[in-house]
Design a protein around this nucleic acid. Structure first.
Lengths: 142, 142
DNA sequence: AGGTTATCACTTGTGTACGAATGAAATGTC
DNA sequence: GACATTTCATTCGTACACAAGTGATAACCT
């Protein structure tokens, strides 16, 4: 019998939401030990910009699953540090285009190997097969 | 070949951190559709208080994986709504004891069935077996 | 007892995360 | 062409999440 099938029982610790939150906490902590001066969302934004080159803010948000308000904060902080450069789209005046600066590009390339380490360390309690399974299952519920 | 073993390749979308974040986003969204007037952390605090009765703020934080600063915010908001009652420990004057009010108890009992629904809906893309596997793997990396 | 250390709570500052409202600009429709 | 709708970005407000620093109290230790 799994611990939560009995009527009237409910353990927060065993719920999917709680475990997701804890796993994420550990991952963020590991991330911070390897990449101290960038947060995971900031890193995701830079990594994605390296992939796609120039995009608008909203579009970038779509790519890395952040809503407009959140993306703005992340991009503003990156811009303030000179890692990202902003410019209005010439034709569509609503759009704010974002691209990496040289420094931003240099930084993300330098950090990519560490990102691999972070992923490895986060998944280190699991076998390679289990890690693969976890990724697939998480993707399904995303 | 998994998509990320090649040298020089790094897709943010496939990393464990990104997928954890997305899965959590979906779960929180589902939670909000079923329980509109309580956040997941608030719910966790109430549910845990129902389990353990009275505890100190810090201790509660330990039980639901929140640091002192975060717990304070959550408890303050619950107290402001009369769901939780605060009192200084008589002997140890540092400690701030927390327990459910009658209203808080009534509310959490009323909401527990919906919490089960939320868990089910979050895991609905998976078979029962896969859901179980996911829980186990997530627990291992927490 | 007296001094060191640990624990508890609080505060401040930074960084997500998102709903809701706003305004400007583009698109679609008749 | 005029009007409604959509899209893009911004702003405001609320709520986690955590590091770092502070003050009060308790526990430990010789």
């Amino acid at each position: 019998m799994s611990p939560d099938t009995a009527e009237g029982t409910y353990q927060v610790q065993g719920q999917i939401g709680f475990v997701l939150r804890k796993a994420n906490q550990r991952h963020v902590a590991i991330f911070a030990t390897h990449i101290a001066d960038l947060t995971p969302p900031q890193f995701a934004a830079l990594a994605k910009l390296r992939d796609v080159g120039e995009t608008s803010q909203n579009q970038l948000g779509g790519l890395i699953a952040m809503d407009a308000a959140t993306v703005k904060g992340v991009i503003d902080r990156l811009a303030a540090r000179g890692l990202v450069q902003l410019a209005k789209h010439e034709v569509d005046k609503r759009r704010l285009m974002v691209k990496l600066t040289d420094e931003g590009h240099r930084l993300i390339v330098e950090l990519l190997p560490r990102a691999r380490t972070i992923t490895e360390e986060t998944l280190s309690p699991l076998s390679a097969k289990d890690a693969e399974t976890l990724l697939q299952l998480l993707t399904k519920i995303s």
